[in-house]
């Protein structure tokens, strides 16, 4: 049973694809268009995520130490910072170091100025958080220490950046979910048309004693192949579109931050689109067939 049945199923899959080639091309076309749109949204979303993460990683908190703080308060602050579980890096910057930085920035403007006698710059701690999203809450926490004079982290700018990118990513995610659902319906309906055209064939199979699985397999494999091709083609298209876009953006210096590398992005997309295409094809075939198997 296994050998003749196996060859039959494989043979039927390819014969079925050939016999109903126009319908199959239509079904695959629907998968290609929907997954291409989905892929474009994913590309945009992935890059927005990458850019915002890069920006977020560059954000650090500067804690200025109050000159009036006593030893105990200074020690409390230092101990807290060094033992804090959410911080990646803590660096002490003395008032002298601040002055050196200022000298390097301003150059000759500060020539002749006696910084040792009269240095108004405050010593500080420059800290980097493990997670960019912790910047705001941690900055608020540090402000409560008595040894702290002021805390800076790019107030306003960081909150706006996080809010805007969050909204963009949520909208992108919503569009992707919507497109996926649309794709399932479109594909199920197109495959249903294919199956309806072969309704007579299915009923004959039932009359001669074919089991439901024996009938289903060629259709499932057809769905799988259509889904695979339907996902592979947009991936190929997206590869060239993205490669061209990255080159164009780099040449024209349109984005101050670099985009994700082509290979990495395409691999990431393939991880989602190929199983999605295959899954859609199989689901579409299975759902469309179930009604016709009840003979």
């Amino acid at each position: 049973m296994f050998i003749s049945g196996f060859f039959y199923i494989i043979g039927e899959t390819f014969k079925g694809l050939y016999r109903n080639r126009w319908m199959c091309i239509t079904s695959t076309g629907v998968v290609v268009v929907t997954l291409l749109m989905l892929g474009i949204f994913m590309l945009v979303n992935l890059n927005i995520g990458f850019i915002t993460d890069t920006v977020k990683e560059q954000v650090e908190i500067v804690i200025y130490i109050d000159e009036a703080a006593d030893e105990a308060e200074l020690e409390q602050l230092e101990r807290m910072l060094l033992n804090h579980g959410l911080l990646e890096e803590v660096r002490y910057v003395s008032s002298e170091e601040h002055m050196d930085r200022l000298r390097r920035q301003l150059g000759r403007v500060l020539e002749g100025y006696d910084a040792e006698q009269d240095n108004p710059l405050l010593a500080s701690y420059e800290v980097k958080t493990l997670l960019p999203d912790n910047v705001v809450p941690l900055a608020r926490e540090f402000e409560t220490y008595p040894a702290v004079s002021a805390v800076f982290y790019g107030q306003g700018y960081v909150e706006n950046l996080f809010a805007v990118t969050g909204v963009i990513q949520m909208v992108g995610l919503g569009l992707m979910v919507g497109l996926s659902i649309t794709a399932v319906f479109l594909i199920a309906h197109t495959i249903k048309l294919t199956v309806m055209m072969r309704q007579k064939e299915i009923s004959i199979m039932k009359y001669v004693g074919a089991t439901n699985w024996f009938i289903r397999w060629p259709y499932i494999l057809e769905g799988l192949l259509m889904g695979f091709v339907g996902a592979a083609l947009p991936l190929l298209g997206l590869y060239f579109i993205y490669q061209y876009s990255v080159e164009w953006i780099t040449v024209n210096e349109l984005v101050f931050l670099s985009l994700l590398p082509v290979e990495l992005v395409i691999l990431e997309l393939a991880k989602y689109l190929i199983p999605l295409g295959i899954g859609l094809g199989i689901l579409g075939s299975t759902f469309s067939m179930s009604r016709f198997l009840r003979v």
Partner: peptide, 11 residues
């Protein structure tokens, strides 16, 4: 042949 294939007859 189809009627035989579904019963698992050999080629």
């Amino acid at each position: 042949a189809f009627a035989m294939i579904v019963t698992g007859a050999s080629r």
